[in-house]
């Protein structure tokens, strides 16, 4: 299994950066998250960025943004470019192919989130250089590392499930974007409204007395449970007999 995963990762690594028209797309895919979350947000927040939960936007949105582009290309793209059927005639197991692709896309999204976090930290330090080094608090650093990884797995897993139902990369990307961003886009304004209208029921008020470490644990465990459930669905659906008849 490890050899199979490594082989698929080897191929994915070479294929992902060489898609037609990929330079513009890569610049856009990388440039927007870095610009918004790696530069604009930390520079706006100032030195307090390293102490406030604002940095968690990176952990949540950056892996989603990257996975939204790479995962459909990896799964639905293989169908669209008609290379999947030949891959299925190889002795690679269904799980070897699936987990190889998942591992590559998760690693890509996670590493990109960490790079964005590093860029944001450097940007904050350059903009607020007064002799002292500004570093994220240990809890925020741990939260960023953990949440970004779990969100990367979540985004890629949703990408797998949507790609298996899609005929083209574009269709898969649109479905994935709708599924990933509908939750924060709908929930955000609602929480904001509640916080402004009924401050006593706002999230900050409710969570004021909760231990941040405990909160992180609960969030991480919830994400982990969702990840496991989604990966299980992906594993059940990524089967040769299903794939060969749905091309």
């Amino acid at each position: 299994m490890i050899h199979e995963i490594a082989t698929v990762v080897w191929k994915e690594r070479r294929a992902v950066v060489r898609q037609p028209g990929s330079r513009t797309r890569i610049l856009f895919t990388i440039g927007v998250p870095i610009g918004v979350f790696g530069l604009y947000t930390p520079l706006s927040a100032g030195p307090d960025w390293v102490r406030q939960p604002d940095s968690l936007f990176i952990a949540v949105f950056v892996p989603m943004l990257l996975a939204m582009f790479t995962t459909p290309d990896s799964f639905a793209g293989e169908k669209e470019r008609r290379t999947l059927s030949t891959l299925l005639t190889s002795p690679l197991s269904d799980r070897g192919i699936l987990f190889g692709k998942v591992a590559f896309n998760v690693a890509l999204a996670w590493v990109f989130a960490l790079v964005t976090l590093l860029i944001a930290t450097v940007a904050v330090n350059i903009a607020n250089a007064d002799g002292g080094l500004l570093m994220l608090t240990p809890l925020l650093l741990a939260a960023n590392l953990l949440v970004s990884l779990l969100v990367a797995v979540l985004a890629v897993s949703v990408g797998v499930v949507t790609s298996l139902r899609s005929v083209t990369v574009q269709q898969a990307q649109q479905t994935l974007a709708a599924m990933l961003f509908s939750v924060p886009l709908l929930l955000g304004p609602v929480l904001l409204l509640v916080a402004n209208r009924w401050p006593e029921w706002g999230p900050q008020e409710i969570l004021r007395d909760v231990d941040p470490a405990l909160m992180l644990l609960v969030v991480a465990l919830t994400l982990l449970a969702i990840d496991v459930a989604l990966l299980t669905v992906g594993t059940v659906r990524f089967r040769r007999d299903r794939l060969i008849t749905t091309q």
């Binding site: 191929k11 294929a15 060489r18 037609p20 470019r81 008609r82 059927s85 030949t86 891959l87």
Partner: peptide, 9 residues
């Protein structure tokens, strides 16, 4: 029926 080759490789 399809060549199954990766054009980008």
């Amino acid at each position: 029926d399809d060549d199954g080759l990766y054009d980008q490789l």
